[in-house]
Design a protein around this nucleic acid. Structure first.
Lengths: 208, 208
DNA sequence: TAGATTGTTAATCGATTAACAATC
DNA sequence: TAGATTGTTAATCGATTAACAATC
């Protein structure tokens, strides 16, 4: 089993990957941590430490082989195989996520969208048919879905979460402000979208 | 001038506020940090430290007066007066935000929505008419808008940012993954929505 | 060789938590 | 008074950054 990577590092790894992938085809085969750091406005020691966690390809005087580094990053970020996700709640936020291209960048594929609203069920959104939430257990099990994305109203979140977990989901991306209880083996990431607004609010009131 | 509050504290203050506001009307007039902590699954010392930054109403043996605490929180979070915001980019994410009720909770009001797409300009979304991005300078200045919300495609983000800043905006909520350059007096909060996906990806690949 | 660059060990920094004195 | 609770000072912890030895 690989060493677990600390969360702050893990959040920076995609930055490195997308920077490296955006390099022009005809650029040098090797790149140094100093260059990466200055481009991404990070500390160079930090970049080296982060990269040391996922590759052993760094060579003094030369740097890192871009191709190898990209492969190691993709490997470690789990970008080798596509992971199926189910989205529950086809409201406006759910629809925005269905249109969100970054998902495929992370090799997630929203295989199915659920909603409990009769007027939405059957609709075709971004090429995906919205299915009744009643079918969560049935379909998620059969489709071997491992990630659940929750974009329902807050009061329904826990129930939906329980049902996704019951259907074999191992990770939850929670976009409501509900605090979800799950078994230990299930990972929950809370994406509280309005969280940073107080910082803006404070800044604005401080500056008239 | 008030002491600046560290960001982690500032992010927890709204949690306290919404918890206190959700208390039943007939509950006790006072509440202890221990109770708040256990309800919100936080450390009680942390709660006291956080609250000490915004109130001096804590009394040994008794706790905090709920009413006073709510007032102090609202005061310090800048919830006393409504702050006008402009949203630029009425795509699916922009529309989701227009529907997002949490805004008004933070006393932000999206006063106007801009887009550069002819087929969207003039549309009515959530009761707001979409206006041509050409009018940003003109309208934001006149409407005294201080917060800009950027939901345009990444490559357009910096230009829109520059124009908002030129129009007198003092804070930017950036929902693209662009790194924005702004004058020092302008605060930028980056809301990178897919940021946490690698954590989920790693968890899933570690657990087959 | 000289010097650029990596990787490691130690120092710093900020936030959280523990210990405890003050107080009602 | 006794004991619950606050607020403060000190310890801990994790992450970042600095210093530096190893290496090509």
């Amino acid at each position: 089993m690989l060493d677990p990577i600390p969360a702050p590092t893990l959040r920076r790894l995609p930055l490195y990957l997308s920077y490296l992938k955006a390099l022009p085809k005809d650029s040098l085969a090797n790149i140094s941590s100093t260059v990466i750091a200055s481009e991404l406005e990070l500390n160079d020691v930090q970049v080296r430490k982060d990269l040391a966690a996922i590759t052993d390809g760094g060579r003094p005087r030369i740097g890192y082989a871009v191709k190898e580094l990209v492969a190691d990053l993709e490997e470690r970020l789990g970008y080798r195989d596509v992971k199926s996700a189910a989205l529950v709640g086809a409201g406006s936020l759910g629809r925005a996520l269905l249109a969100y291209e970054n998902f495929s960048e992370h090799q997630f594929d929203i295989a199915v969208a659920f909603d409990s609203d009769e007027s939405v069920i059957g609709m075709q959104i971004r090429g995906k048919r919205v299915i009744s939430s009643d079918k969560i257990e049935n379909l998620c099990g059969r489709m071997k879905i491992r990630l659940g994305i929750i974009t329902v109203p807050e009061r329904e979140a826990q129930e939906i979460c329980d049902r996704l977990v019951g259907a074999g989901v191992l990770a939850i991306w929670n976009l409501t402000s509900a605090k979800l209880s799950v078994p230990e083996c299930v990972m929950v990431i809370n994406e509280r979208i309005g969280d940073a607004l107080p910082l803006l609010s404070q800044h604005l009131t401080e500056n008239i």
